[in-house]
Every structure is written in C-alpha cells, then in structure tokens.
Nucleic acid binder design. Structure first.
Length: 827
RNA sequence: GCCGAAGUGGUGAAAUGGUAGACACGUCAGACUUAAAAUCUGAUGCCUUCAACAGCGUGUGGGUUCGAGUCCCACCUUCGGCACCA
C-alpha cells in the first residue's frame, strides 16, 4: 500500500528541529577562508491582515538562493526585519484607540509565525524592527550626524498636505495629485519643515549607477527622477528697475524668437512687486490686484485642480518688461502656474514658435509668434497651429548670426555668445529636490531636536538618545503633530534642557528608517554604535537585493544617499550599498487583478499550507513563471506541484535500486547541471521543470524495467531538490540515510552535487534535417562522427524522409551546425 | 505626450539565430470504484483528414539570413513609471 506523505506532521517536525538546533543563525564573523554572501529582501510593513501569497514569492526565491549558496560553501548572511513604523497602525489607533505599539507587535508575531511555517532560513538572531527604541535610537543618531554636517536643515517651504492624514507628504508620495496612502486630494501649504540635503550628492547618485548590477530600466528610472539637464541661465534686465530676471533654458538657440517671459507665481520678483519693494509706475500699480489674486489662487489650487485644467493656460501680465539684449526687443513679463517654482530658476523665456506650452500660452493671450527654426517640412511660413510647432529638429532662420545652423550647433554657438558677452552662464539643472522628512504623525521616530525659549533649534544630546516616543498622546488628528498632546514629552524636555524649552513634535518619514536597515542587520544588538565598523566591512555591501519594482525610486535613492554620507564620515568603505539587484513581480489574484481585501481576491499562505503544505506553496510559486513578471494565482494549478512532491515521496519507497539504469544516471547529471545553472540566474521555473522531467523518467524506468538509481544518486537528487522543498527533502534524507554512519545533521548541510560531464555524452545524437529551411526529417549520428560534416551530410541526403524532397532538384548549398541541424538548400 | 516592459495553445508558460509549444494545469477517452473523490494510462496548437512524415501557425506589415518567437524598421494593443521639468 502507498504511504501518504503527511505534510502537516512532517513540516511541523522539521521546523521545530531546525529551530531548536539554531540551524541558520550566523555567527557574526565571516569564518576565515569563506566568502560571504549577503542576501537581502525589502523588509515588510507588518500589516494587520497578515501575509498573503505575494509576500511568499520573494522570500522563497531568496531562501532558495540562500540554501543553494550555503551548500556551495558560502557564508550566507540572510537577515530579517520589519519596517514597523507607518501610517496604517496609527490610523487603526485613531479608529479603535489601540496603541500602535500593540497592533504592531501582534502583526509582527503573526508575520513571524507565518514565515517560519514557510521554512525560510532566516537568521532570526539578528531580527530588527524599526519601531524598537534600540533601533530608532540610531535613526535619531544618524539624523544628528546629518545635522552636524549641515545636511539636515529646517526650511520654510510649500509642502504637499494631506487633509485626511493631516500630514505633509513628500513629492514622491503624491500620486496623481492624491495621497499615496489614502487617496485624498493633496493641497499646498507653507510650513517650517526638516529636510535632508540629498541634492549634495546628486552627481554621485548619477555616476554611482555605473558601479552596480541593476536592471537597466531601474537605472533609467532613477536617472529620470534625478532629471539632470544641461542648459544656460540668461539674464534679462527689467526695464525701469535695477533688477533682472534670470531664466533657465536648454534651448537658447531659439532666443531670437522669444516674445515674452513667464514667472512662477511663487517667484521672488512677484513677491517683490506685491510687497512694493520695487518702485511701481501708476500703470503698473493697476496690475497689482489681479496679480495678487492669481498668486493667491495658485496657492490654493490642489494638484487635481491643476490637472483638471489640463493644457489650458492661465496667467496674468505683471506690467513689467525685460530687455532681450540679443536684439534689443522688449519682452512682457507674465506669471503663470505652468511654470514651476522648483525647477530651473522658476522663470522661463517664452518662445512660442518652438515650444508647445509657450505656443498655447501665446495663443491664449495674443502674444506674437516668431519662427526661428525650419523643420524637416521646409515650411518657412507663419506658425498658426500647434502641429507646426517645431521642437526637436531643424535649421535656424530669422536669427542673425545663427541663420542656417542646425539647432544643436546653434545651441552651442549661442551659449558661447551669451557667455562671452556676460549675458548668461552655462549651468546644470536637476529635478531632484531635497528630501522633506518631517511628518506630523505619531507612529515614527521623533526628530531629536529641542527648541530654546527663543525658538532656536538645538540637537538632543546624545546621552538622551533614544529620544523616546511618548505614549501619553491623543491620536485624534487635529492638524497638528500628535506629540503636541503629550505632557510627558514637554515635561521631559524642560527637565533635561531647562524651563521654556520645547521639543520638536514632528516625527521622521519612515523612509529614513528604511534607508539604513541593511547596515543595522550586520550588528543588530549593538548599543554603542549603529553598527560595528569591522562587521560592516566584512558583511557589506549587499550582494543580492530582491525588491519589488515599487521601491525603485525612493527607497533606493535614499539608501544610496545614506551610504555615501556614512562613507564620507568614515564609517563605510564602499560607495554603493546594493551591488546586485533584481525585482520580483507581483502575484495577482485569480482574476488577474492586484490582490486586495476590498476586491476579495486575496489568497493567504495559511490556507494553501493547510491543504497542500509549505513545500507545495513554495514550489508552486517558483514554478508559476519568471520571477520578475506579474503572474495570476491559479489555485487549480497548485495540485500539479502537490502531485509532483507526492510522487517523489512514493519513488523513494521503490525507486532506489542497487542496479541502475545508465540512461537515468546520465539524465540525473543533466538535471544537476541544469538546476545548478538556473538557480544563480533566479530561473527557478525552469529548474523545477528539470526536476519534474527527471522524476518522470525515473518513474518510467521503475515501471518499465524495475531499475532506478542507487542510494548515492538518490541522495544527489535530494540535495538539488532541497532548496526548493526543504521539508520533504529533509524527511526523505533522514529516513533514507537512517542507517548511514557519517550522516550530516541535515540535507541542508550537505555539499551541492557536481555533474560529471562524461555522463552527458550521448552515444547517438539526433540531427535534424531541413530542406530550404523547412523541417523534413532527422538522422541519428554516432557520437564519433558528430564533427564529420561529410558523413553527416551523406547520412542526411540519403535519409528516406528527405530524398523525396530532393528529387529533381540540385543541392546548391549544405549547412551543418554540429550536433544540431543540417540544412540543404535546393533549386 | 515622454520613458520602460511585454504580446507564443483553452490556461500558467518553455525555447545560446537551428525540431516552436518543454514542464504543468485544464479538457477528452480509458482503468480502478456501487458511485464520487483520489490515483493511474493514453490523447490534446489550428486546419484538411481514415491518417498524416501535407498545409497553416509565436500581435500586424515589411526586411536581414541557408534558417527568425529570437536580429532590424514601421505600426497596433496591453501593462508599469513619469507627466506643463523650460
């Protein structure tokens, strides 16, 4: 009778065994002569709803890699932790009054239990959670380090404000004008906020990408985000004043076609007019009310309003003119919200003939349009329609000394000319801004700053770290930081710093927590440093980072910034934290849509493990398709993997024989080769297919000839199966070798088998025959003739399948690809 | 609009420029069973067909090549990201 593999009982048994024996806990030192391998996954936010099958994918993938590398003699560092600060826990607290520290702990406990059931071989001894005072003490310490170096600063600025969450959002956290978290329309607000000066490292954030092995599209997205543009700042004197307006442009070649200037409503010059710091003529005074109203309106506009406006241009004339020194023309100065205060100089020179937005603006306000570029259509006439606006290619006209030049040549010549005359200066502009880290939230690390009675900022003293997050707060959103409601927090500040001193009540963006967690892993219990320098030098940088594509821009940019800063401070010896990075795709619901509670398409690992076991879940998810692509979950298909594992278990009852089938042994070596090649490339789906093929062959051999493979080879197969199905392979390994003398403690401590190339050599090779590129037959060629073209061609042309296609034809060409294909070209 | 990725059976998917559809699900037929589930065996791209070693087939249209899912050009569709960035 067949023995049924009882996954529940078996998996519990080995999970307990591995845990009791501290199987995968690393000593924190890399043993001499061993190469380290640091495998990292993006630590998760422990949400209340627990793990879903999507979480399982990346964890399993890296676990397979970890086990494979251990068996290949690497010192694997595979830590785990929790990105535990964040909004959901706090929102839950607002609703229910349960403190975030409680919900977070419960959520982590659930996650931990679920992950352990999956058999992920994490180094639990170094587990971290960013909400733990032992962790955020160092988050705060790093803030102070930045503060000392002038890289953390306080500044006034327009910020994105979410009225629902009652907090500031980074630009990156505003999606389509809505809050990334809750979907509420974001508005603009001016506030005093803390920033990190990431722009200090802009150039290195660009050049450092050359050092790392990341997917190309990821690098491109980062570059795009940084948005480096070479251009020139041109100075335009304002008529009737001693001021001038500076415009940034990448296309000064078109400057003879300039007909106006547009400022962002937030531009300093506009403020100066409104504040009457600039003497106004009577005529100019008349523009003031309109101007003031427009500035006011812009400030109140939400991102969504701006979007709803679409391309429709609005604006107001300031009453001022500047001088275009190239041709002595007067250009009217306008303001419009299509010009962004944060890019370039917040002022744009309007060339309506050759910039679509400028054209639309000129049309709306009846400003003249001048053609200075002739495009590939050779049209030199007036520009009257959007479709005629030539931006990308052509030659100059109506531009005096530039006439006839190709636009790129003209750009260079114009830049030289402007610089030579002192009217402009070449410059580089970036989209990247400093990182706004203040959050008016409770559940985060408090910013370690206190204010003296005069309101000046002072760093919290190092001996007062961790600067504890108070617990006596009111979670109800008031528009102000919840920490303001803590009596203890204010009392503490006065006690430690003096009467009238007050604490900073904002907390840090959770991206700060996650910008350095991979450093803390290396020395997670250190109480006197964020991590020991030597330990970091030994284990870092990260060798493989597996991360979802959603983190491409922010988290990676911030982490790289931290790394470069800490390197400059002498703590780190490398430039880039993540040497190799790959992305896992998303596991979609059975309906092909993103899994979400509200859609009711969430599959939990618990239900699958209950029914089929953790090994089945692991192997199924790896078998679904390429790691990096999005894949819909199909519960129906899980059964196939379940059957596969059951059949393996059955085979080991009957398939291990003293006499071996030679073809089977050779097939095993081919399988070892394939699996060994696929795992490092993260091609788990094809590795599993190879394992399945071998099991099919082995089964067939037993059925037909009653011969299988011997114990040694049977063990070899178990070893290559072990990373994928750790429980099943351990179970079989232990019972198969129960009488063996020098048994390793576990299959997972075994050495990875090597394939024997001699075993892969076939006696006969099938060569395919094509006639004029079409498949017409095949011949078997003995191994020794495989490189003898004459023999192979002769065999091919005399093959009965082929002769009928050659009848009455002349062979004009013979192509032979050794061991694969013959192509006969006939006429 | 710009940047990026991807289009292959009923489904998830394989395929260093060299036998397209490996492997798996599903489906159909059969075995076992009172029956069902489970398990096992066989078939399964489409089409003509008694059967095909015949024809057609990797989003569309061209091209390069002895040979193209794979390389090149143009286009269509889907999905991600950015989006008035001067």
């Amino acid at each position: 009778m067949k023995k049924i593999y009882d996954h529940i009982q078996v998996e519990e048994k080995w999970q307990k065994f591995w845990e009791e024996e501290n199987f995968f806990q690393q000593t924190d030192v890399v043993p001499a002569g061993m190469e380290k391998d640091y495998l990292l996954f993006a630590f998760a936010y422990p949400s209340g709803s627990g793990l879903h099958v999507g979480h399982v994918e990346s964890k399993t993938a890296l676990d397979i890699l970890a086990r494979f590398k251990r068996m290949n003699g690497k010192h694997v560092f595979f830590p785990v932790g929790w990105d535990a600060f964040g909004l959901p826990a706090e929102n839950y607290a607002v609703k229910t009054g349960v403190p975030p520290v409680v919900t977070t702990k419960n959520a982590i406990d659930t996650f931990r239990r679920q992950i352990k059931r999956l058999g992920i071989s994490y180094d639990w001894a170094n587990e971290i959670a960013t909400n733990h005072p032992g962790y955020y003490k160092w988050t705060q310490w790093l803030f102070l380090k930045m503060y000392q170096k002038g890289l953390a600063y306080r500044g006034k600025g327009m910020v994105n404000w979410c009225p629902q969450d009652q907090t500031v959002l980074a630009n990156e956290q505003v999606v389509n004008g809505k809050c990334e978290r809750c979907g509420t329309q974001v508005i603009q607000k001016e506030l005093e906020q803390w920033y990190f000066k990431i722009t200090e490292y802009t150039e290195e954030l660009i050049s450092g990408l050359d050092q790392v092995d990341w997917p190309k599209p990821t690098k491109e997205q980062q570059l795009h985000w940084i948005g480096k543009k070479n251009g020139i700042e041109i100075e335009y004197p304002v008529e009737g004043t001693d001021q001038s307006i500076i415009c940034f442009t990448t296309r000064p070649d078109t400057n003879f076609g300039a007909t106006f200037i547009v400022l962002a409503p937030e531009h300093q010059f506009v403020r100066d007019i409104l504040d009457k710091k600039i003497p106004l003529t009577e005529e100019q005074e008349k523009h003031l009310p309109k101007l003031a109203r427009y500035v006011q309106q812009t400030a109140e506009k939400t991102e969504l309003d701006r979007q709803a406006e679409g391309k429709r241009k609005t604006g107001v004339f300031t009453g001022f003119y500047v001088l275009n020194r190239l041709n002595g023309k007067k250009l009217p100065v306008w303001i419009s919200d299509f010009v962004l205060a944060g890019f370039g100089t917040g002022a744009v020179v309007g060339v309506p003939g050759h910039d679509l937005r400028d054209f639309q603006f000129a049309r709306t306000f009846d400003i003249p349009v001048i053609r200075v570029v002739v495009g590939p259509d050779k049209n030199e006439g007036e520009i009257t329609d959007e479709s005629q606006v030539q931006e990308e290619a052509g030659h100059m006209i109506n531009s005096e000394f530039l006439n006839g030049l190709e636009i790129h040549e003209a750009t260079e010549k114009m830049m030289d000319f402007l610089e030579d005359n002192g009217w402009g200066k070449r410059t580089v502009s970036y989209k990247l801004r400093d990182w706004l880290i203040s959050r008016q939230r409770y559940w985060g690390a408090p910013i370690p700053i206190v204010y003296d009675p005069q309101g000046n900022a002072h760093p919290v003293k190092e001996e007062h770290l961790p600067w504890m997050l108070p617990t006596d707060v009111d979670f109800k959103p008031t528009g102000e930081s919840p920490l303001k409601s803590s009596k203890e927090f204010f009392e503490r500040t006065e006690r430690l710093y003096g009467k009238g001193w007050t604490p900073e009540c904002d907390t840090m963006d959770t991206f700060v927590d996650s910008s350095w967690y991979y450093l803390r892993y290396t020395d997670s219990r250190n109480e006197s440093a964020f991590a020991d320098k030597e330990k970091m030098a030994k284990l870092l940088p990260v060798d493989m980072y597996l991360i979802g594509p959603e983190h491409i821009v922010l988290h990676l940019l911030y982490s790289r910034f931290f790394t470069k800063f800490l390197r400059d401070e002498g703590y780190l010896t490398f430039d880039e934290p993540f040497m190799k990075m790959r992305h896992q795709g998303m596991i979609l619901g059975p309906d092909g849509k993103k899994m979400s509670k509200s859609k009711g398409n969430v599959i939990t690992p618990d239900e699958i493990i209950e029914k089929y076991g953790a090994d089945t879940l692991r192997v199924y998810e790896m078998f679904m398709g390429p790691l990096e692509s999005d894949k819909p979950w199909d519960t129906g298909s899980v059964i196939g993997v379940y059957r596969f594992l059951q059949r393996i278990y059955q085979l080991y009852q009957t398939g291990v024989t003293e006499k071996e089938a030679p073809g089977l042994v050779s097939a095993l070596h081919a399988t070892i080769k394939k699996v060994s090649e696929d795992i490092p490339e993260l091609k788990f789906n094809t590795a599993i297919a190879a394992l399945m093929i071998f099991i099919n062959q082995w089964e067939e051999s037993i059925k037909k000839a009653k011969v299988g493979i011997n114990a040694e080879n049977a063990n070899a197969f178990l070893k290559i199966l072990a990373p994928f199905a750790p429980f099943l392979s351990e179970e079989i390994y232990q019972s198969l070798n129960s009488s063996a003398k020098n048994l390793k403690k576990s299959v997972h401590y075994e050495e990875w088998p090597k394939h024997d190339p001699k075993q892969l050599i076939q006696e006969k090779v099938v060569v395919v025959i094509q006639v004029n590129g079409k498949l017409r037959g095949e011949v078997e060629i003995p191994q020794e003739d495989i490189n003898n073209q004459e023999v192979v061609i002769a065999a091919a042309t005399s093959s009965p399948q082929v002769t009928k296609w050659l009848e009455g034809k002349e062979i004009v060409k013979e192509i032979y690809v050794a061991g694969r294909v013959v192509n006969l070209v006939v006429k």
